[in-house]
Design a protein around this nucleic acid. Structure first.
Lengths: 111, 111
DNA sequence: GTAATTTATTCTACAAAGTAAAACTAATAA
DNA sequence: TTATTAGTTTTACTTTGTAGAATAAATTAC
C-alpha cells in the first residue's frame, strides 16, 4: 500500500507553506507565505484549486474555523497536512536530493 | 531579462539527469538514470515529449551524434543543459530550500 | 434595518506539463 | 532483402497550474 504518486511542483510549495504556518494555514496566509518566502505571486483562485485537489488526494485535510468576528469577513477554512502528505513531501525531497548528489553546477550566479 | 518561469516537477528531474550524464545524455541513458537513481520508470515517449519542450524553452540544446555503428540502431541525439537551464534549476532549488528551512517533518518514516 | 464594506471561499475555463502507446527511421546482421 | 536492433517522433489524453469572476457571510455606517 502507498500509491507513491509524484507531487506537482506547485503542490509541493503549498504543502510546505501549510507546514510552516501550522495552526494559521488558510487561503490568505498561505498565499502570503508563498509571496514572502519565494516571491511567488499566485492568484487566490489558483491556490484554492490546488488546495481542493490536494484534499481530494488525501494529502491535506481541512476544517472550518468559527466565525472570527473582527471586522467583517467570512469564516476561515484551515488546512493541515496529513501523514500521507508528509510522506509524499518527504519522498519527493529524497528523490531530488538523490538526483542532486554529486552534481555541481558550475554556474556564475544571477546578475 | 530572464523570464524566471517555474520548472515542472518532471522537468527538474530530466535536467538533473542530463547534468549528471554529461557527454552521454540521450534518450535511453536519461531514462535509465531516472530508473536507477530514483526508481522512476517513465515511458520513453513521455521522456522525449519533455525533452522537446525543454528544448523549445531553451533550457537544453541537442546535437545529433554520428552513426555509432556497433550493431544496428539509429543515430543518437545528445542533450546538454544551457545556461538558462542551469539557472532555472538553481532557482527552483533555492525556492525549495527556502521553503524547507526550519520545517521539521516529525515523521515516523516509511514502513 | 439595509446598503456598503470587508474577508474569505467557490466556480468556470483554459493553458501547460506529465504520460503511454504506437508509429516511424535508420543502421547492421542473417 | 528481410529480420533485428537501437533509437526518435507522433498522437492522444490526463493531471496540474493559473487567473478572473462569482458568490458568501459577517460587520459597520447611515
Amino acid at each position: 500500500m502507498g500509491k507513491s504518486r509524484f507531487l506537482g511542483e506547485f503542490e509541493q510549495f503549498v504543502l510546505l507553506a501549510i507546514l510552516r504556518l501550522g495552526e494559521q494555514a488558510y487561503g490568505t496566509t498561505i498565499r502570503q507565505i508563498l509571496l514572502d518566502v519565494i516571491q511567488r505571486d499566485v492568484s487566490i483562485g489558483a491556490l484554492y484549486t490546488t488546495l481542493t485537489r490536494l484534499e481530494d488526494k488525501g494529502l491535506i485535510r481541512s476544517a472550518m474555523g468559527e466565525a472570527t468576528a473582527k471586522r467583517g469577513g467570512r469564516a476561515k477554512k484551515f488546512f493541515e497536512i496529513t501523514a500521507e502528505g508528509k510522506q509524499a513531501l518527504q519522498e519527493t525531497r529524497q528523490s531530488l536530493d538523490a538526483m542532486w548528489r554529486d552534481v555541481k553546477l558550475t554556474f556564475v550566479g544571477v546578475k
